[in-house]
Amino acid sequence: MVWLVLVGIGLLAGSIGALVGLGGGIIIVPSLLYLGTSTNIIDELTPQVAVGVSTLIMIFTGLSSTLSYLKHKVVDYKAGLIFFIGSAPGGIIGAYVNKNLNAEAFSLYFGIFMVFMAIVLVKNRLKPMLFKPGKGKIVKTYKTENGHSFPYGYHPLLAVLISFVVGFSSGLFGIGGGALMVPVMMLLFFFPPHMAVATSMFMVFLSSITNSITHISLGNVNWPYAFALIPGAWFGAKLGALINTRLKSASLENMLKIVLIIIGLRLIYQGITG
């Protein structure tokens, strides 16, 4: 019974995580905590262990979805590595600073911020400014299978600085970096929705490796539960990536907005109730 429930959670987390580029931790962590405190299905876990298990699972979610997106050529590996250079140290510093902050208050503020980002995640009028020639700027064009072209671009140094802030915020509030990085890539660098999600999952894969090493060294991983979650997360990620590639850009963007609003409202609720 326990294994079936955990496989199901892994499948759901992998599917949704790969579909919108969030990784799946936003589902795994609250699910484990709920099952441990409100049911007799699994033993009660500390928040640290729940996060540690989730981080380990996201290695497999990230790898599985990245391999699937690779077939459709929608992963910008160079951009993903550049963003990772900033987000990795930012996440570590943010997690450290988190220990000295009022978690409830910041969950409230961050939840409001997430809802705000969902609202503003629409076409803006800064695109013409972005693609003016500039020293050191990387400008690319993504072409869909239907022949539509989507130009996007970024300056490497600016990308590192922004991803550092994103990583810091993610570590500070204890939420996956994809929840912030996907809308940032779309709003500031004008990544097409499909490429933003796929590149985010590549980053999730990289960051989960580094973060898992820390959690494993601290003993924050319940291995039996992790092994039960991995199969569902692996195949769920493939399912999410498959659905993603069959959605239109507008549909994917709308789905991302809905997920961000749900996450934001959940954080607001946590901040209010403590």
Rank of each mutant, 00 (worst) to 15 (best):
Y154D: 07
M186D: 02
K257P: 07
G136S: 11
S87Q: 02
N124L: 07
T141I: 14
G52T: 07
T141K: 12
K132R: 15
I26K: 08
F150R: 11
L12N: 02
P192E: 11
G36I: 00
G219I: 08
L252H: 07
M186P: 00
K135H: 14
L81N: 11
G219Q: 01
V74A: 14
F60I: 09
I162N: 02
V160A: 14
I119T: 11
L11S: 01
N254K: 15
W3E: 11
G274R: 09
K127H: 13
I268S: 07
D76T: 12
G21R: 08
E44S: 15
I93D: 00
M114I: 09
L63D: 02
L45P: 02
T46R: 02
R266T: 10
A159E: 07
V182P: 05
W234T: 14
M129I: 14
K238I: 12
A105P: 00
D43V: 05
N40H: 11
A105L: 15
L121F: 13
M114Y: 10
A88N: 04
V182W: 00
Y109V: 12
T66L: 13
P193Q: 09
L188E: 10
I262Y: 15
G134A: 14
A13G: 03
G271A: 09
S68R: 14
I92T: 08
T37L: 13
V75R: 09
G86W: 04
L45H: 01
Y34E: 04
S65E: 07
G14A: 04
G236Q: 03
L19P: 05
G91K: 01
V160D: 12
M203W: 05
L172D: 05
K238N: 10
A228M: 15
L22V: 14
A179G: 07
F202T: 03
K143E: 15
L188P: 09
I85S: 13
I26A: 12
T66P: 11
A118Q: 05
H72I: 10
P224N: 06
S107P: 00
S31P: 02
L19H: 01
N222K: 01
V97G: 06
D76K: 13
S200T: 06
M255W: 12
T214E: 11
A250Y: 12
P133G: 09
L180N: 05
L130H: 10
A105C: 02
L108N: 04
V7G: 03
A103G: 01
G240S: 06
G236M: 04
P151I: 08
V51Y: 02
I28W: 01
N124T: 14
F173W: 10
G62E: 03
L187H: 09
T273P: 01
A196S: 11
D43L: 10
G274S: 08
K248Q: 13
G24L: 08
K257E: 06
V166N: 08
N211I: 00
